[in-house]
Write a protein that binds this DNA or RNA. Structure first.
Lengths: 226, 226
DNA sequence: AGAAAAATGTAACAATTGTTACAAATCAAA
DNA sequence: TTTGATTTGTAACAATTGTTACATTTTTCT
């Protein structure tokens, strides 16, 4: 393991708070492998058992899904120092949900599941970090599902804006995502999102100026977000 | 802690594989509290910090959400010996996403987060169990989102059936859920589900007899599940 | 600043899904 | 087995969202 890789690893959310020395020592104790992949190579196959924690040391990989008709769907792009599918390592049927494919020259650290379990037991900080990572993901997902369950697009948007308002503590919201991103997140087509945003503007619920949204009528917005 | 409660606990997924003796000893070491709630009392308030692992020893609780218009939404019903919101204990903003309300006379075990972390470190089996629980939940949620992202109801149904087929390894599927349950899971109205099921029947994709579904044309089904 | 690319606004029409209502079938308990 | 409750099938119509296409605006890069 190069010192470059070590410093990358210490920036990984899993090892946050550990010095590179502690990290190197822990990794030595527990055992690991570093593998190298050229671009376009399959790192892990959809459906195969997921018995290693995989951490990207350099380069990037993609989660790809080939649907039944053969069309390629990119689920997510992962770059160093992110862990690959940490929420699947300990699941009951721990198969990879996607093909993991190298999108550039990359190095990946493999730690066997049982060894990683030992690492978690020996290091409170790593345990906390790992639990936090998969818990956050779970929270993100259930949040997303909450949005998807709203009955129509206006409610989804209202709920989304109210959540932003809660986070930013202001009636004047600065959005970071494009309409396309937001449409994807809410599970609708982009023109549909634009149309309903316009409706809400016409109803004086909100005001839009570029990426700034001003909430004009909180009470009505809350009514919408049933 | 009564022996009744201990035996309930040993059936909890968190403590699976531990004898009641080991369990009692571990709990003594780590410290806990048992609290008793009459029906309709709020056990934990939406938005309040979630710093305890809560395990239902007897009775039942509901996750309830009060939306902005004041309407009550029941998210889930939990009975002994289930843990309450295990995926939120370690999340960064670890607030309860819902009101937890006693639906019957109930006893709940509280273990402080830091003490529970110690328990996880000391007991490999409990650690494994806990990781598996929250990982499974994560997997369940991302699976659900996958379905919700299909572009129309026919694709969702096709994907659902193909998943069942993969699980049951048979073209003749035995469904356990009612149409209403399935409609909720897929995020559509029940008559819409029935309508599309009929369409698929008319197209000779499937055959339905009560709760049994026979897949007549796997290739076409896979085509649908884009 | 100017050009190219990306993002947004909007419209017409198609497709899908929701709503409501009621009948028929199935299931569960007495 | 019969009754009552739940689940399922179906239809008409309303509402919502998707699709496509193009103009316009904003951003990004040189």
């Amino acid at each position: 393991m190069t010192s470059q890789h070590l410093s990358t690893l210490s920036n990984s959310p899993i090892f946050r708070g550990l010095s590179t020395d502690e990290l190197a020592k822990s990794l030595q104790e527990v055992g690991y492998q570093v593998k190298h992949f050229p671009p376009k190579v399959i790192v892990a196959e959809q459906g195969s058992a997921c018995n290693f924690l995989m951490l990207i040391l350099s380069g990037s990989v993609q989660g790809q899904m080939i649907d039944y008709s053969g069309k390629l769907i990119v689920i997510e792009e992962l770059v160093a120092p992110m862990p690959v599918a940490p929420a699947f390592l300990y699941a009951d049927r721990n198969e990879f949900p996607v093909n993991v494919v190298a999108t550039s020259e990359c190095c990946i650290l493999f730690i066997a599941k049982s060894n990683f379990t030992a690492l978690l037991q020996g290091h409170a900080a790593i345990l906390q970090n790992y639990l936090t990572i998969i818990s956050n993901r779970s929270k993100f997902l259930s949040n997303k599902i909450m949005f998807l369950n709203f009955k129509n697009l206006k409610s989804k948007i209202a709920a989304f804006l109210l959540q932003k308002q809660h986070e930013q503590q202001s009636l004047q919201l600065r959005l970071t995502e494009t309409q396309q991103d937001l449409a994807d997140y809410l599970g609708v087509a982009r023109p549909s999102l634009a149309r309903v945003l316009k409706e809400m503007k016409d109803e004086q619920l909100i005001e839009i100026q570029g990426k700034t949204v001003v909430l004009l009528n909180l009470a009505k917005l809350k009514q919408e977000a049933l």
